[in-house]
Design a protein around this nucleic acid. Structure first.
Lengths: 145, 145
DNA sequence: TAAAATTATCTCGAAACTGAAATAATTTGG
DNA sequence: CCAAATTATTTCAGTTTCGAGATAATTTTA
């Protein structure tokens, strides 16, 4: 088969795999009244600490206006709050409230377990090679907004 | 590193790679006033012939209500039309109009070329292994709606 | 050091997508 | 053979996401 067709199939494959993974994660997090984007933000704050809004946008790959929207949602739900940066007044940090932290302590471990299971068909070598290839494709990342 | 963390990174990697690929495709098709979903439908009809709405939904992985929405959009733009099935009156086929076909004749080849370039960092072997791994992950596919 | 450029966040209106339920047609099985 | 179940599509209201532009703060540069 020629290279163009192979590439096309790989493109579709990535889309399908992403869809497959996300539909599983979605099912998981919806039990807590969260959607994938909301969970991604909570997960980032939980594992990497307080983050400027800008940083959240870059990490979870959504438009800046969407970032404002998701953080607002999480603030409404009482899981997140905002705190202005003391040096640079343009910057606003998002951080987990006590309620948000308690939620993540409860739901993150089984979530990580689920993700592990989604990849269980792969050998260690396969998983490592897969990650390497993914990186190779998307190194010089595109920037949105 | 432990398996759970590896899996988690692979999960994020798939998401990023998908985002990277889609942002490139988006840039390409937006020049013709199309979004990715619309293009995916046109591409399906162009390469696989007329399709029942149901089939479109399964192929491009969106909710049935979204399928109606996208096809409506393409009908409005004059690229697609609907035709009822003569045997089973529940079924409606979507097909390319002459205008739609002309558009695809023009834009599909450079589009395929773009996709090929997005994977050009990979050797033939790497690309083949990558496709195999993608399939392995998402074999028993989840069904939406 | 003041004007210009850049950076961070938010507002707003519109587009895209979804789930639940409605409608209509077909198939199944008791 | 008909009631119940299934299948295909659409409608509708609501949610999520976006792009363009506004606002405000900081940095650059001439």
């Amino acid at each position: 088969m020629n290279r163009t067709k192979e590439a096309f199939k790989a493109f579709v494959g990535v889309k399908r795999t992403n869809e497959y993974l996300e539909s599983n994660v979605k099912k998981d997090v919806s039990r807590y009244g969260l959607n994938i984007t909301e969970f991604a933000v909570l997960e980032l704050l939980y594992n990497k600490g307080d983050q400027p809004i800008q940083h959240i946008k870059n990490r979870i790959l959504i438009a800046s206006s969407s970032t404002t929207y998701v953080v607002d949602k999480l603030v409404d739900k009482g899981y997140v709050d905002r705190r202005p940066d003391t040096n640079d007044r343009r910057i606003s940090y998002a951080f987990l409230t006590e309620k948000g932290r308690e939620l993540m302590v409860e739901i993150f471990p089984p979530h990580a377990e689920l993700i592990k299971e989604l990849f269980e068909e792969l050998t260690d070598e396969e998983l490592a090679a897969f990650r390497k290839t993914l990186k190779k494709i998307s190194v010089k990342r595109a920037q949105t907004n």
